[in-house]
């Protein structure tokens, strides 16, 4: 188990390192940094001075290592647009995205896991077919279309919920449904397949033969084992949701990091873009690492890979 964890940790760290290299390249591809920092009105002499002050005249490898050292300490430099540190802007916006992601994950799990279990228990019946059809339909609806549709129905026509913003908890309902919807088909398919596999196992037959009620067999005996793969997928989906929240935040004008990154790209404010890419990737890498370890703890068969 320790060897497995260490191996996974090495992979996770080297992936993080590669991602940091990509983020660094992204920043340097966005144009001459000295000109961007000095501003559009700066004279060539001022640009040269900035270049020297910020160490932009050093070899790229030295710059990368220096930048990486700072990034590990959560120092991502200054934004070209806001004139404050990137870290402080992101710290301000992060809670919105995190809340949105967490509620979305909860919504998708609450819809998808029971649906998957019911579909598996009633395999091959009309209920199963309806659940699978729901999945195929769900996959075809783009997040931003669903978001706009929810606004038209629940915010404009019914006036139950606010159109946009982040003022209160009511503001999070529609965006979370739109974002969580995206993960429902995958989670549902996985819980259905996991359940089907478990339900055909010998110990379930034994439990049934003992005369336990079907509900106890499914919810107590089968669910525990069927849910293991869902844990890993839920972690991965949470990572995807943080990355995908950019679309939902744009639709609902929520000022999270997705919205921040979107605006930053339009303003060519690449220090911010780079930091958001790096942070989201780091969260994803951490989540998948933790999910792998938890999976291996729950199911020793996973420890080989």
């Amino acid at each position: 188990m320790l060897a497995f964890t260490l191996r996974r940790l090495v992979v996770a760290l080297s992936v993080a390192l590669t991602v940091s290299l990509i983020a660094f390249v992204l920043l340097h591809l966005s144009g001459d940094l000295a000109t961007s920092i000095a501003g559009p009105e700066a004279s060539p002499a001022q640009v040269a001075q900035v270049r020297q002050e910020y160490g932009l005249d050093r070899p790229l490898t030295v710059q990368y290592l220096d930048w990486l050292w700072r990034a590990v300490h959560l120092d991502f430099g200054n934004s070209f647009y806001f004139r404050t540190t990137v870290a402080s802007i992101i710290a301000e916006r992060m809670p919105v995205t995190m809340t949105l992601g967490a509620i979305s994950l909860m919504i998708s799990l609450v819809i998808a896991v029971p649906l998957g279990i019911i579909a598996a228990v009633f395999k091959g019946t009309l209920i199963d077919r309806l659940a699978l059809t729901f999945c195929v339909l769900g996959q075809a609806i783009p997040t931003f279309c669903l978001g706009l549709g929810l606004i038209i129905v629940f915010a404009v026509n019914l006036r139950w919920l606010p159109v946009s913003g982040t003022a209160g908890w009511m503001n999070y309902i529609l965006p979370s449904v739109a974002l969580g919807w995206y993960a429902v088909p995958a989670v549902m398919r996985l819980s259905r397949n996991g359940m089907l596999e478990v339900l055909s196992a010998d110990y379930i037959r034994t439990a049934r033969a003992k005369g336990l009620s079907p509900a106890v067999v499914v919810l107590k005996h089968a669910l525990r084992n069927a849910i293991i793969p869902v844990v890993a997928l839920a972690a991965v989906q949470f990572g995807f949701m943080l990355g995908g929240s950019i679309v939902v935040e744009a639709v609902f004008s929520m000022h999270g990091v997705g919205h921040l990154a979107w605006e930053a790209i339009a303003r060519n404010d690449f220090p911010v873009v780079q930091a958001v890419v790096l942070i989201l990737a780091a969260i994803y890498i951490t989540l998948t690492f933790v999910a792998d370890v938890i999976n291996a703890l729950l199911d020793p068969r996973m420890r080989v890979a």
Binding site: T18, L26, G243, N268, V277
Partner: peptide, 22 residues
Amino acid sequence: SYIVTTRLALPVVLVALASAAL
């Protein structure tokens, strides 16, 4: 497999947006 893992770690919408802008 390592390259695929790295690619999966990148937030695809964000990287696509940034690259499209570049």
